[in-house]
Simulated assay, not measured.
Amino acid sequence: MLNWETVLNTAKKGNPEPPRRVEKSEAQWQAELSSEEFYVTRKHGTERPFSSEMCALFEPGIYACVCCHTPLFNAQEKFDSGTGWPSFTAPLEDNVVAYNMDISHGMTRVEVTCNVCDAHLGHVFPDGPLPTKLRYCINAIALAKQK
Rank of each mutant, 00 (worst) to 15 (best):
E36N: 07
W29Y: 13
T10E: 03
N15K: 07
S34K: 07
E23K: 15
Q28C: 03
E23S: 11
S35F: 00
P16T: 06
Q28F: 03
K13E: 13
F38E: 03
A11V: 07
Y39Q: 14
P19S: 10
E32F: 11
E37F: 13
G14L: 09
A11Y: 10
A27G: 01
E17L: 13
P19W: 15
K24M: 13
V22K: 03
T10F: 01
P16D: 05
G14R: 15
K24I: 02
F38Q: 06
N9M: 10
P18T: 02
S35N: 08
K24D: 06
E37W: 07
A27W: 01
N9Q: 07
E26K: 09
L8N: 05
P19G: 10
E36D: 14
R20F: 10
A31C: 01
E32W: 11
S34R: 05
R21S: 10
W29Q: 03
Q28H: 04
V40T: 12
S25K: 06
R20M: 08
V22C: 09
E32D: 14
Q30W: 00
E37I: 05
R21Y: 07
E32G: 09
N15Y: 05
Q28N: 03
A31P: 00
R21H: 09
V22Q: 01
K24Q: 14
S25G: 10
E36L: 14
P18L: 00
L8Y: 02
G14H: 11
S25I: 01
P18N: 03
L8A: 05
T10V: 14
A27T: 09
A27I: 01
S34D: 04
